[in-house]
Write a protein that binds this DNA or RNA. Structure first.
Length: 291
DNA sequence: TGCAGTGTTGCTTC
DNA sequence: CGAAGCAACACTGC
């Protein structure tokens, strides 16, 4: 998400939405009709691009001539396979083809079901193979209220160890599941939870209530470390995720356990295993991640 | 060929 | 009521 935000900020900030196209209206959850969405978004300008948990948020204004339309935000949740791309395409036989040669031609970038035409001739696409992604247009103040329900952002300065301990206090269940609960801590998914638990030498099935202060501290440090590394390296792209220019992130170099079942643990040489934790695969080293 | 599995989340069911 | 199950969907690899 951090990588997506950074890439978008460079390219689409201060541009206006000229029009929007889709072949999968279900992606637009709010307002209910696509035509209404289209009418509302037209001519609104992107004033700020930010993130809360795994939501990408564009704060909009109507621009100097359209002040009465201020106060809206566009929310995009990319879910499993969605990713936002910026470039130029043309529609040929109902499929979007990139105008120029390059990474946007890669197959994973061609599942475009939503296309925003921006001012200045640029375009922003949502490529989404499994079409789970959602897009919503909110009144900014209502959206902010909604987002307050989420847990704290682990990359923010105010995410102190005290705060981490506090949000986990009274929680029960397996630590991996709790880490992935967006209402407890925002932004941690299946990859980074596995990675953080490896760094903290903690077993994914450890009961979160059983973690002592020392274990909590190393988990806290591990979460920050892994997410910072993810943001620095441009994200994990072994599968579908791509940066807004269509290229891959480099987090794969840092990936210690996720999808490494059967391989050797780089820390202790143990054999990496997989198990199901709350219907998700958890990858871990049974030799050095303690229960 | 068939089926489990896939970076998510929210609704339904027990 | 809280936790588990499942659905949304397309595609891959065993």
């Amino acid at each position: 998400m951090e990588t997506t935000i950074k890439g978008l900020q460079k390219k689409v900030l201060n541009r206006a939405f000229v029009d929007v196209w889709t072949d999968w209206k279900k992606t637009i959850k709010k307002p209910k009709s696509f035509e209404e969405f289209r009418k509302e978004i037209k001519n609104k300008k992107i004033k700020r691009i930010w993130r809360r948990a795994k939501n990408v948020i564009f704060d909009l204004s109507g621009g100097p001539a359209l002040n009465r339309t201020e106060g809206y935000s566009l929310l995009v949740h990319q879910k499993m396979t969605g990713h936002l791309l910026v470039g130029k395409w043309e529609l040929k036989n109902d499929k979007w083809k990139p105008v120029e040669k390059g990474p946007l031609e890669e197959k994973i970038n061609l599942y475009i079901h939503l296309m925003f035409y921006l001012s200045g001739g640029l375009m922003m696409a949502l490529s989404d193979m499994r079409i789970f992604a959602k897009v919503e247009l909110w009144k900014t103040d209502e959206l902010k209220k909604e987002l307050e329900k989420l847990g704290p952002e682990p990359l923010e300065k105010n995410f102190t160890f005290g705060k981490f301990r506090k949000v986990l206090r009274g929680k029960k269940g397996k630590v991996k599941q709790v880490l992935m609960d967006q209402n407890v801590i925002a932004g941690i998914g299946n990859i980074y939870s596995s990675e953080a638990l490896w760094h903290a030498k903690t077993h994914p099935e450890k009961n979160v209530a059983d973690l002592n202060d020392k274990e909590l501290k190393s988990l806290y440090n591990a979460i920050k470390k892994v997410l910072e590394l993810g943001a620095e390296s441009g994200g994990e792209s072994f599968s579908d995720y791509r940066k807004p220019d269509g290229t891959k992130g480099d987090f794969d170099k840092e990936r210690k356990v996720y999808r490494r079942e059967g391989q050797k643990c780089s820390r202790c040489g143990g054999k990496i295993k997989r198990l199901k934790v709350g219907q998700r695969s958890a990858f871990y080293c049974p030799a050095c991640q303690k229960l």
